[in-house]
Design a protein around this nucleic acid. Structure first.
Length: 551
RNA sequence: UGCCUGAUUGUGUAACGGUAGCACGACUGUUUUUGGUGCAGUUUGUCUUGGUUCGAAUCCAGGUCAGGCAACCA
């Protein structure tokens, strides 16, 4: 990080901790629960945790917070590892909370021995009721006064599987009148017979988040444990456990999670979109998941840049989707191969072109002098965009119309002579003459043109399929809406179009980034084949003409 | 009605008692064989009321507003 850039509040804390000698080096961790795919909000956390370590010369662990086997799957573990790697980060250690189950159990026994935990036979409802409310203190029950010996025996029996699911829980004995609800004798362990993706059926009791997370941090010697704002009330409990157990004192810090316009950022909601078929899968290119964005054509670099630009603070935020789009356009503009693709074709006949065909050349990327060129076949019958012809052009229209001239990109200047319509009044063909002395790169015609059109030679064109994506939701701020969030799904978030592409595309590499001239940035879909090329639109180009027309 | 966070332009984010800056967006102009890119410029802000101070976005007090907290979820 450059010196002129100011530090965010967490970087300030770390700087001070390092300067004061509190730590010789730092260790952070990224701790997802493997119950879904990672999304752009996780990317913010990943960039923060790994970025901090990188900046301050420390390390970062990847830790799976797998304490609830009912929701977790190996598929999610695999996807999370893939996504973190793809984003460009390397973890020091791959850890699992489940690796610490034995240790965690021992910690719980210690607490019981200190008279700080007890087995409670109450039902979930009873416990909830006895907890009181934020304004009314909770009340205890007789189980709270069980002897240490009895608690020890009972907890061992819980572990041994002598009770049914939900029959008993282990609770910390703290303060039922605490103004912080999380300190009102929180649950530490519950009985849950569920196959765990790593420990199998070894355990029938599982630690709760609050009894697993801080201790896992401590076991790994995490110096700075960074999480989101909703965990602020948990911090007192985090510290309490560490203090009572007298173990390595990791510290928790909280920042505001990412929210973005026109999308949702919760695994629960994203899971719903997948399960109810509103999108195809977790990696549907409309999803704000890392895998969806990757499939859509976002680069890891652009996502990292985005995370860098949004900053880290404690206030709630909602980031404009336009910032993400800016980041990916900026990156892609520099690296994308330019190609020409016509989506809504109309035939352009060059009436005076009698050479049959010729091969022209066009630059792969005007931003990159070393990007080279590609071959571009030209002939007397071309496809151009329907919207590039207007029967009765308006004043600011720079494209084709009767009597108007335009440059065909990397080819010639043509002048429109006439056009044909079908019975329904639709334009079917446009006729134009070309100016032989206006060839791209050696133009001596002196004809002034304002517009340049992309085109494809009709007989050389290859058919491709384009997925044109738009925002997933039609309202900017989903958090301000009422009712089911799915009511606000944009019905036009995907527009599949057949298109004609220049032949060079058939031989391009699978993972190349493209800019289809005047249309947007595209990336080959995972389902694309040689027989049927499919491209996903990552993002459109900025379109000031479309904006002008709306006025 | 308890506790905990927070409040700087449309959206983010800086300024650490001393010029309210930066980015995105929006808007101009300019360049351009992409109505893209680039370049130049314009644009709107310290929640509120008091207090401390030579000086307050910053410190203090009250208020207002927003979010979070009472899952055998994380």
């Amino acid at each position: 990080m450059s010196e002129e850039k100011s530090l965010n509040f967490i970087e300030e804390i770390i700087s001070q901790d390092l300067a004061s000698g509190k730590y010789a080096s730092i260790l952070t961790r990224f701790p997802p629960e493997p119950n879904g795919y990672l999304h752009i909000g996780h990317a913010k956390s990943i960039c923060l945790n790994f970025g901090l370590a990188k900046h301050f010369g420390g390390k970062t662990n990847l830790r799976f917070d797998d304490t609830n086997p009912a929701k977790e799957e190996i598929e999610y573990v695999d996807s999370i590892k893939e996504d973190v790697k793809w984003l460009g980060f390397e973890w020091a250690k791959e850890c699992y909370a489940s690796d610490y189950f034995d240790q965690l159990y021992a910690y719980a026994v210690q607490l019981i021995e200190k008279g700080l935990a007890y087995v409670d036979d109450s039902t979930a409802e009873e416990i909830a009721q006895q907890k009181g409310t934020p304004t009314v203190p909770g009340t205890g029950n007789d189980f709270r006064n069980r002897s240490i010996a009895e608690n020890l025996a009972l907890f061992a029996d819980m572990k041994a599987g002598k009770f049914a699911d939900g029959e008993k829980v282990l609770r910390a004995k703290i303060d039922l009148a605490s103004p912080n609800m999380h300190m009102r004798d929180p649950l530490l362990y519950r009985i849950k017979r569920s196959h765990h993706h790593r420990t199998g059926d070894k355990w029938c009791i599982y630690p709760m988040y609050d009894f697993a997370h801080g201790q896992s941090d401590s076991i790994e010697n995490i110096t700075h444990s960074i999480c989101t704002l909703e965990f602020i009330p948990h911090r007192a409990l985090y510290d309490w456990c560490i203090e009572q157990l007298a173990i390595y004192p990791s510290h928790q810090y909280e920042f505001a999670r990412l929210n973005m316009t026109y999308t949702v950022m919760s695994k629960r909601k994203l899971l719903q979109l997948v399960e109810e078929g509103h999108v195809e899968s977790w990696d549907d290119p409309r999803m704000p998941t890392i895998s969806g964005m990757r499939r859509r054509g976002y680069t890891a670099h652009s996502i990292r840049d985005f995370c860098d630009r949004i900053g880290i603070a404690k206030r709630e935020n909602i980031i404009d989707l336009s910032l993400l789009e800016f980041c990916v356009r900026e990156d892609l503009n520099k690296i994308a191969q330019r190609r020409m693709v016509v989506t809504n074709p109309i035939k352009l006949v060059i009436t005076n072109y009698d050479k049959g065909e010729e091969v022209l050349h066009s630059e792969n990327n005007p931003e990159d002098p070393n990007g080279g060129t590609r071959e571009l076949p030209f002939s007397n019958e071309l496809w151009i965009e329907r919207e590039d012809f207007m029967e009765e052009p308006t004043k600011k229209y720079f494209r084709l119309g009767p009597g108007l001239s335009v440059r065909l990109k990397s080819a010639y200047i043509v002048t429109c002579e006439s056009f044909e319509k079908d019975a329904a009044g639709n334009i079917t063909k446009v006729f134009a003459s070309y100016h032989p002395d206006s060839k791209s790169g050696q133009d001596t015609s002196g004809i002034p043109v304002k517009g340049t059109l992309h085109w494809v030679s009709a007989k050389h064109a290859i058919p491709v399929l384009l997925n044109e994506y738009d925002r997933l939701f039609s309202v900017e701020d989903l958090s301000s809406t009422e009712g089911d969030f799915k009511n606000y799904i944009n019905p036009n978030s995907l527009n599949k179009v057949e298109a004609y592409a220049e032949p060079a595309l058939a031989n391009d590499s699978l993972d190349a980034r493209f800019q289809f001239l005047r249309k947007g940035y595209f990336y080959q879909d995972t389902k694309s084949t040689k027989e049927q090329l499919v491209f996903n639109r990552t993002v459109t180009l900025k379109d000031t003409w479309a904006k002008e027309q709306k006025k």
